[in-house]
Design a protein around this nucleic acid. Sequence first.
DNA 1: AGTATTTGTTAGATCGATCTAAAAAAAGTA
DNA 2: TACTTTTTTTAGATCGATCTAACAAATACT
Lengths: 354, 354
Amino acid sequence: MSQAGDDIMTRKKRARVTLEQVANHAGVSRATASLVVRGSPHISKETREKVLNSMKELGYIYDRVAANLRSQRSSTVGLIITEIGNPFFSELLVGVHEALDKEGYTVILGTTFDSPSKQDALLSTMLEYRVGGVIMSPVPGCSVDMVERLKQWEIPVVLVAREMPSGEQFDYIGIDNVAGGRLVTEHLIQQGHRRIAFLGGFSGSSAWRDRKKGYCQAFHQAGLEIDESLIIEAPATRQGGINAIKQALQHPNPPTAAFGYNDIVAFGVMLGLKEAGMIPGRDFAVVGFDNIQESSMFNPPLTTVSAFPQLIGTYAADILHQRMNGDAGEAKRLILQPELVVRESSLLHSDHQF
Amino acid sequence: MSQAGDDIMTRKKRARVTLEQVANHAGVSRATASLVVRGSPHISKETREKVLNSMKELGYIYDRVAANLRSQRSSTVGLIITEIGNPFFSELLVGVHEALDKEGYTVILGTTFDSPSKQDALLSTMLEYRVGGVIMSPVPGCSVDMVERLKQWEIPVVLVAREMPSGEQFDYIGIDNVAGGRLVTEHLIQQGHRRIAFLGGFSGSSAWRDRKKGYCQAFHQAGLEIDESLIIEAPATRQGGINAIKQALQHPNPPTAAFGYNDIVAFGVMLGLKEAGMIPGRDFAVVGFDNIQESSMFNPPLTTVSAFPQLIGTYAADILHQRMNGDAGEAKRLILQPELVVRESSLLHSDHQF
DNA sequence: AGTATTTGTTAGATCGATCTAAAAAAAGTA
DNA sequence: TACTTTTTTTAGATCGATCTAACAAATACT
């Protein structure tokens, strides 16, 4: 259970100035001082100033921990993402953070690294800390049970970027991954490619399945066959991309283009191509997904799909804020439409043949 | 002062299961149940199991808020950085986060965007939340006053990446920016460059001043003159880099190489060069600072200096952990030695003349 | 002036845990 | 069996704020 080990704790020596001391100093009651702190309108100008002066004089520090305990409220919000190393999530974090900050919330951060047990542990911690709400990107194969526990305690939950099986009851902000996958694949087909690998990511994540769905749709629509052996799962990391493209190039009938699960994978794919002596954007087309800031600066600049992570974060924060203020309406679904950004990595010179 | 506006709060409806209820259910006292939760050794096996069962049965959730209030301890750590958008800091965040996570701390995140008032507000918030310690990268020109307030409350503070005027009393983990600036500049001088611009960043930050110091040292050591008009301050962003290089190119006697304050600026510089019709790495040498992951993947790959942000984060977390466990020794200073990483952006073809 | 209303203030209980110091139970010893 | 000593359990105060409901004081209304 919740072992509060002593080793990880710190003891404070200097005693805190309490509201009671402020009240005494100002010659009013504790309750009055409390009202002043909270900016109540039922306080006369003079008392307010008396109290504010005493606060300043004594160096008073508001104790949110005590206040939250008594009031059964919380101005803390939990944010659970898979990893901060991925710019998609760090940009999402920026969006969430800025929006919540503006409203006066404090953010508690957690990263799951796609481990369900870590996610459960994080959710527990957040419950223990009495967070007022949670924004999370669920791990693949995440069971709804744990998250429902939050619902039980009437802690609003907003899902971002990834869906959860039977998670219809939760607000969700994401991008239309099917459309995104289709955009990418249609683009590559239009460029004349017929053998297009889909590299990286794992089928456990809803985003992966949707992007693949879009990939398949584009193939079908063009009347082309899908070669399942060109769909290679791998960690959604640079190294995963390197490995995946290497494996794909071993194929007796290798692909001429690759759709990376996300930009990071696509970077890996391009690095792998370079290692194999090929020049991405000339000998081989590569497309990514997310349009993180770096993708415009890669060599060559990466064709990709904008997934608007920061915007997703902002919306998620806004919705959570509404929920925390009592909005109990139906679960909202906000699906942003992706936009294809064509750059050099997918525009092979016309003198190439396939 | 600390207005706890009602609008930002959430009310929970379903009552929490308290330790008292658990105790009643298990037929023991509240105190005993508390000891069980905390894993005290003075509890007999049977009572422990009785209580644990009751906890499970009732769906008990440990209330850290209440516990922290009474025990005057805290397992929360504040992390204050300037921005998450900068990969240097997001990598630092990864280091801090992983290390603290392992020890069971929870991280409260704050970003200052280099605004002193925002930093003060954040420090206040953290005090209000009773954090047990703070890791921070101080804003340029940060006064020691506010941070000293934390010291007063015996809340340990570890500074990272940037120093603070008269901040000798605080632990500091950073990199030898002087050495880094020298490495970069020596490298460029060795490549035959004589007119080297120093672009981006502001002189308010200690990192800027140190890097510039190294830059000057290298010049002096080589017996060369410094042209102050080639030192251009600008925001440490991509756009700042673009603007700075454009300005530098206007110079009647323009530079042949640029030292970007950090990799992001260097990226901007390279983009600006491209816009001006020049090819970085062929017509103009560019070097950055930090060696963020993307710099190896840029076009061309960026010569830079490794600043080991993740490692800095890890060390900072470790030291903070020690401090929170009572280590009251002298302020520690841990200065990592930077390493030059030479890539194509600074290796001009030999047929070029200056 | 006398009552009703509004405005400002407050005492005392409370949030859910931990602490202290002391009591009860169990084990060890003579 | 009686008396320590050790182990286990507990009652009651406490952390620092907010809540409730009631009480003064000031203002408004016949």
